[in-house]
């Protein structure tokens, strides 16, 4: 046993991780010398497949039973998944995140896939979804169908649900209460439920954004009068506020007010922006420093950005930021 523990320590496992491996219900049944030989065999096998040491430690820390699997079974599982349609690189990536995949029955995976195709997904959708969110492979079909029903109750159509989950498959792994909470959080930022449904339909990844992240972005765009733009064009949330601020101020300095008609100017591709206006991204960011602007505002704590009216910029009325209170929908624009 001491030789086994010493070998695991040399491989990079901590004492806590070593205890988990030797006491696991699968590995704990083996004699130490047998387990050590199996660990070396499987470790070398995984390295030959392309896993790094760090990956193997992470996988086996989570699932020590990997050291009990035969290399033949693991190779066979990879072959079966390749025949089904996954690329080998994708399988390696999926098993890093979900090592349990090595123990899943390929027929069960195929059967679930067939049922999902009946619902409306293509096989390509399913491969992409499970590649991006391998945990879906472990979900029961009933759970997936229940989630679809729960989302319908929120106001999404089947087509919406398929689009949302195709683009953001991790939605299936999140509790419906968490989704409802996210919708409520966005409502508190000044949108109606119907508007939030529209936003999440267009940009499903909103469900993954944290409250802190959403607040910073939405409040910034509110402050420059682009509240309504985010309903029809929520993809704009994916441009860093730092860049949006710099471009907004660039236009403001030139007497150009950005509004809901011309907002695309601050979201132009950098090449086009540079050729049209003769300024690089670096120059913009240096001249219009978002961090400097934040320092001027009174901030209570990181993550809670209160808004002060500033003389030389057009800002909206103060938004109530008390947690739990509905934001007033008074995103008044300066009349320009």
């Amino acid at each position: 046993m001491e030789e086994l523990k010493e070998s695991l320590k040399k491989m990079g496992y901590t004492d806590k991780q070593i205890e988990k491996i030797v006491n696991n219900h699968s590995t704990g049944k083996m004699k130490p010398e047998t387990l050590l030989a199996k660990i070396k065999e499987n470790y070398n096998f995984l390295i030959s497949l392309g896993y790094k040491k760090e990956d193997i430690i992470k996988m086996t820390k989570h699932l020590p039973a990997i050291y009990v699997y035969t290399t033949e079974n693991m190779e066979q599982k990879i072959s079966e998944l390749e025949k089904y349609g996954y690329a080998r690189e994708d399988i390696i990536k999926m098993t890093k995140r979900l090592p349990e995949l090595f123990s899943y029955n390929i027929d069960s995976i195929k059967q679930k896939s067939e049922e999902l195709e009946k619902i409306g997904y293509s096989k390509e959708d399913i491969i992409k979804m499970t590649k991006n969110s391998p945990a879906i492979c472990g979900l029961a079909l009933e759970n997936i169908k229940q989630k679809m029903e729960d989302m319908k109750a929120l106001g999404y159509s089947i087509e919406d649900i398929i689009k949302i989950t195709r683009e953001s498959p991790s939605v299936y792994c999140v509790n419906i209460e968490t989704m409802k909470q996210k919708i409520e959080e966005i409502i508190k930022l000044g949108y109606s439920k119907e508007e939030v449904i529209v936003m999440t339909r267009h940009l499903p990844t909103i469900f993954g954004y944290s409250t802190e992240n959403l607040k910073q972005k939405i409040q910034f765009y509110n402050s420059i009068g682009l509240h309504s733009v985010l309903i029809i064009d929520p993809n704009k949330l994916m441009q860093s506020v730092e860049l949006s601020y710099a471009r907004y101020m660039f236009f403001k300095d030139r007497g150009i007010d950005i509004d809901t008609q011309n907002y695309s100017r601050i979201f132009k591709g950098q090449k086009v922006f540079e050729s049209q206006y003769g300024v690089t991204k670096e120059e913009l960011l240096e001249k219009y420093d978002y961090k400097e602007y934040l320092k001027k505002k009174s901030t209570k704590e990181l993550g809670k950005e209160t808004i002060d009216e500033q003389k030389d910029t057009s800002y909206i009325n103060k938004i109530e930021e008390v947690v739990g209170e509905q934001s007033d929908k008074e995103y008044l624009l300066d009349d320009k």
Binding site: K52, E54, D55, K58, K96, R97, G208, Y209, S210, E212, N213, Q216, S240, E242, K291, L294, L302, G303
Partner: peptide, 23 residues
């Protein structure tokens, strides 16, 4: 990445924390 960006990234993408450094 500044503090706000780090906060935004980590709080919105917990899976990042589970990825290997080499990847």
């Amino acid at each position: 990445c500044d503090d706000i960006q780090i906060r935004n990234i980590i709080s919105s993408n917990a899976e990042y924390l589970d990825r290997s450094v080499s990847d």
